[in-house]
Simulated scan of single mutants.
Amino acid sequence: MYTRLDRAQPYALGLFRIVVGLLFACHGAASLFGVLGGAMGGGSIPAGTWPGWYAALIQLVGGTLIVLGLGTRIAAFVASGSMAYAYFKVHQPEALSPLQNGGEPSAVFCWVFLLLVFTGPGSLALDRLFARRSDAEPSEDRTHEQAPAVAA
C-alpha cells in the first residue's frame, strides 16, 4: 500500500544524504586544514601522510560529492571502503567492539555510505538534473542510415 510517507521517501533520502555528506566533508576539512577543531586538537595533517592525509582527502572530496549528489553511488562506495579500512586497520586492533576501540564513527559511516550505494542519492541531487538533461537532448540523427537487411 502506498502511503503519504512513501511519497516523501526520496526527499528524506536526499536530506539524509546531504546531512551525512556534510558531516563527512567536515571531518576531511578539519583534518586537512585544521578548521572546525582541526586534526587531533587543532593542527592539520601533513600532506601525503599515509593513511591520514589520504583518508581526509577522501572525506572532503567524497563528502562534497555526496552532498551535491554528484556521482553519489561511486563516491559513497569509495567512502564506505575508506571507513571499513579505518575501522579494521586503525580501530579494530585495539579491541573488537566499536564501543571499546573508538571506531563507532568509522563503522557507522561505513554502513551509511554502503546504504547510499544501493539506494542512490534520493531527490535534490545533481545526478538527477544531469540525467534529465541528457534524456531531453535529441539523439543523433539516424534518418540517413539504411535499415538492416532482413533475412527471409
Rank of each mutant, 00 (worst) to 15 (best):
M1W: 00
Y2M: 10
Y2C: 05
T3E: 03
R4W: 12
L5R: 03
D6P: 02
L13V: 09
L15F: 10
L15Y: 00
F16G: 10
G21Q: 09
G21R: 09
L22K: 09
F24L: 14
C26Y: 09
H27F: 05
G28E: 04
G28A: 06
G28K: 07
A29E: 01
A29W: 02
A30C: 05
L32K: 05
F33R: 05
G34V: 06
V35W: 14
G37V: 11
G38Q: 09
G38I: 08
A39E: 09
A39L: 06
M40T: 04
G41E: 05
G41I: 04
G43F: 02
G43W: 01
S44H: 09
I45R: 00
P46W: 03
P46G: 04
A47T: 04
T49G: 01
W50H: 05
W50V: 15
W50P: 01
Y54H: 05
A56S: 13
A56G: 06
Q59M: 13
L60G: 07
L60C: 06
V61E: 10
T64F: 05
I66G: 05
V67N: 06
L68I: 04
G69Y: 07
L70Q: 02
L70R: 02
L70N: 03
T72E: 06
R73P: 05
R73V: 03
I74S: 08
A75R: 02
A76Y: 07
F77A: 15
S80G: 15
S80F: 08
S80C: 13
S82A: 15
Y85N: 10
F88W: 13
E94K: 15
E94G: 02
A95M: 08
S97Q: 11
L99V: 04
L99Q: 04
Q100E: 14
G103P: 12
E104C: 03
E104M: 14
P105E: 11
P105C: 10
S106A: 15
S106Q: 13
A107Q: 10
C110Q: 12
C110M: 15
W111G: 14
F113T: 04
F113S: 06
L114G: 03
F118V: 10
T119W: 05
G120R: 12
G120Q: 13
G120P: 10
P121A: 08
S123C: 01
L124K: 00
L124G: 00
A125E: 02
L126E: 07
L126P: 03
L129Y: 03
L129A: 04
F130E: 01
R132L: 11
R132H: 08
R133N: 00
R133S: 00
D135F: 00
D135A: 15
A136P: 01
A136I: 01
D141T: 08
R142N: 09
R142I: 12
T143K: 12
T143E: 14
H144G: 13
E145Y: 13
A147W: 07
A147M: 12
A147D: 12
P148L: 14
A149E: 15
V150Q: 15
V150K: 13
A151H: 12
A151W: 11
A151V: 12
